[in-house]
Design a protein around this nucleic acid. Structure first.
Lengths: 230, 230
DNA sequence: GATATTTGTCACGAATATGTCATATTAGGG
DNA sequence: CCCTAATATGACATATTCGTGACAAATATC
């Protein structure tokens, strides 16, 4: 699926190059020569991704990134920073303010596209009411039913929400805190370890249809629903 | 076909953004900066869909949604809630008061349009006067008669409406609040748990023809009429 | 107006879900 | 191969949700 990519770059030649790349990758570039222009454009279209030059006239890129990340409307838009220097220092500063990735100039088109693709892939899909099916495991939010290979699977409310979240965000590792935020909601105080228990209960229920190891544990990080294999 | 979409959003910039989106999608935005303005506008035009911000000055969005859903004149208008947080918990709360969908800010225009389209498309089926038959259970709205496997089933008025609603919306989980809205109507001074009692009475009556477990309880969510094989 | 039916609410027990702990097991570094 | 931290698991107390019978008020029926 094509994405709107806002390109904030003051050097016209480089901007053209970036736009060309984005077009070839099947996405839709939105050009901005300055932060001010970018801000105006964002009133019309909220982009799916921002390519942001480090050095810009007026407000610099770092400040802009910080600003974007502090506004609830824009804070979840992924940002890729472009910088001339390859310093580790810059990278750290960039990631500190919330940039999602980082490309040094000069860059190869292939590398840029790879990073764009990676960042876009990482963005979390919204939970919808559409039925989801992964590996023969089917979850229908509307009827609140879960079926694994024709067998009906019985889940408690929390396990259902947990599985729903995992299925809408498959292939990604989620920390316990993230799961607590997304599945439990931010109003309750529960121990991180509680997640483990619910994961076990979920796995247990999924064993009915042989999907017990659909949810994998990533040691030191969290859990992930894998769409690979069985 | 173009639809009138009421946008209730206090932030002018975001409202403008939403209106622009709606126009581009071929629909007709009606702008309201507050719940009060929205209520006035609705005296003139009943919208086909309402985009409602979660947080609003004065009455908040949740309350407004509840109010809309408790008025017979407006209760069938689909509502899409806009919220800053992405928690499942909020989603549940939103859906409980009858919101049809839910979009987290920041949102991409594409996503918003997809949801608008989806909600307009999947409007809840109208209760018609056509006879319905599910699993050997037959309900005829015209003659006000219910038969299960040749056996006549005797229902009180409320139970009849309840069953009618369940049969026109089979395989979907309905919360108690939703049932109160759809089956009871405006009289929202009824306890949630009252639904349980009527469900029991309905099940009891259906037992005559062996359909007692046609209506299933989904713990933590509500009830569902199962259209699966017996 | 008397009687029957329907309706909403409550109380309470049963069933189920939830969070936390203690302990067993495991993965991965050294 | 061993050690240790991380995770899995079983058990349990607590909390929540649901089913049910009873009952009084409201409503319809005669």
């Amino acid at each position: 699926m094509p994405a709107n990519i806002l390109v904030v770059e003051d050097e016209p030649a480089i901007q053209e190059l970036l736009a060309l790349n984005i077009t070839q990758a099947g996405h839709n570039p939105i050009r901005a020569l300055s932060v001010e222009i970018a801000q105006n454009l964002m009133r019309e279209t909220i982009p799916d991704l921002i390519l942001l030059d480090w050095m810009l006239p007026g407000m610099n890129g770092l400040e802009f990134a910080r600003k974007l990340k502090s506004d609830s409307l824009t804070k979840s838009i992924p940002i890729i920073m472009l910088t001339a220097r390859g310093d580790e220092y810059d990278k750290v500063r960039g990631l500190e303010v919330g940039a999602d990735d980082y490309v040094t100039k000069p860059f190869s088109p292939r590398e840029l596209n790879a990073r764009i693709k990676a960042v876009l892939r990482r963005r979390a899909p919204q939970m919808t009411d559409d039925p989801i099916e992964i590996n023969g495991l089917r979850l229908d939010p509307t009827s609140h039913r879960v079926t694994g290979n024709q067998k009906s699977i019985d889940l408690g409310p929390t396990e259902f929400r947990l599985l729903h979240f995992f299925m809408t965000n498959a292939e990604r590792v989620h920390t316990r805190s993230q799961l607590l935020d997304k599945v439990w909601g931010d109003r309750v105080f529960v121990e991180d370890r509680t997640v483990d228990v619910h994961i076990r209960r979920l796995r247990n229920a999924l064993a009915v249809s042989g999907h017990q190891d659909l949810i994998q544990t990533v040691r030191g990080s969290g859990y992930r629903l894998s769409a690979q294999h069985t």
